[in-house]
């Protein structure tokens, strides 16, 4: 709300002088990468939001065959996806505790945790690829049905974001290796952790969305007014 209060200022008046100095002061104290990450997460949210909208709209066409709801459909029993979910959750937890351990200067524990975090993330990606293979072998190829297309597409894009995260994380650790700047590492690592948690939430959302059954989509679509 400060934003709107600021918008009402009359900048040409003298009384803004000292106030202005302090306002600008406060903002610049923030860590800039944090602001950038906020906006970036906004961008990614819009991306997935738009995919979701098209998905819901597409789910209402006749040729759409949901991936769960009947015994022969692959995600009626989605145990494999649940395992992957657990793995991604573990990755996030490892990173979170890596930050804690770093703050306490427990370097060995930190290295262990951050390695585990990366490992679990990669494991999640392999898990997802495994899901793809099983899906493909069960006859649910990419272009067979829009539900399949969306499954591959959205999990793929989610996976790419995670791979991007792993790369960013490696860069952060590498920079630490070079410059040994502890404060900066804590800051950057905190942001990585936020990103991981965010991707985990996105994954939960996608999981729910992609493994719904026809009736669920009908309800959602009706609710959204399609």
């Amino acid at each position: 709300m400060t934003f709107f209060r600021e918008l009402a200022e009359k900048p040409w008046l003298a009384e803004n002088g000292p106030l202005a100095l302090s306002v600008a002061q406060k903002e610049t104290n923030q860590f800039p990468a944090k602001t950038a990450l906020k906006f970036f997460l906004g961008v990614v949210t819009v991306l997935f939001f738009l995919f979701t909208i098209t998905f819901l709209s597409r789910s209402q066409s006749n040729d759409f065959q949901a991936l769960s709801g009947e015994p022969w459909l692959p995600f009626t029993d989605a145990y494999q996806l649940w395992i992957n979910t657990g793995i991604l959750l573990l990755a996030g937890i490892c990173l979170q505790f890596a930050v804690f351990s770093l703050k306490k200067q427990q370097m060995n524990l930190f290295i262990l945790l951050i390695s585990c975090g990366c490992l679990f993330s990669c494991l999640f990606i392999f898990g997802q690829i495994n899901v793809w293979q099983n899906l493909y072998q069960a006859g649910f190829a990419l272009a067979e049905n829009p539900a399949n297309s969306y499954f591959y597409l959205l999990t793929g894009i989610h996976g790419l974001h995670l791979i991007g995260g792993v790369l960013a994380l490696s860069y952060v650790v590498w920079q630490f290796w070079l410059k040994n700047n502890n404060k900066k590492l804590v800051d950057n690592l905190t942001l990585c952790t936020v990103y991981w948690h965010y991707l985990f939430v996105v994954w939960l959302f996608l999981f729910a969305l992609l493994t719904g059954n026809t009736a669920t989509y009908k309800t959602i679509a009706a609710f959204c007014g399609f």
Partner: peptide, 23 residues
Amino acid sequence: TMGGLNYVTTILQARAKGMTLMR
């Protein structure tokens, strides 16, 4: 997106002392 994140963050974070939004 790379450029845009930069512009937004710069405008929000790197303004000189006294440069309020409305200035």
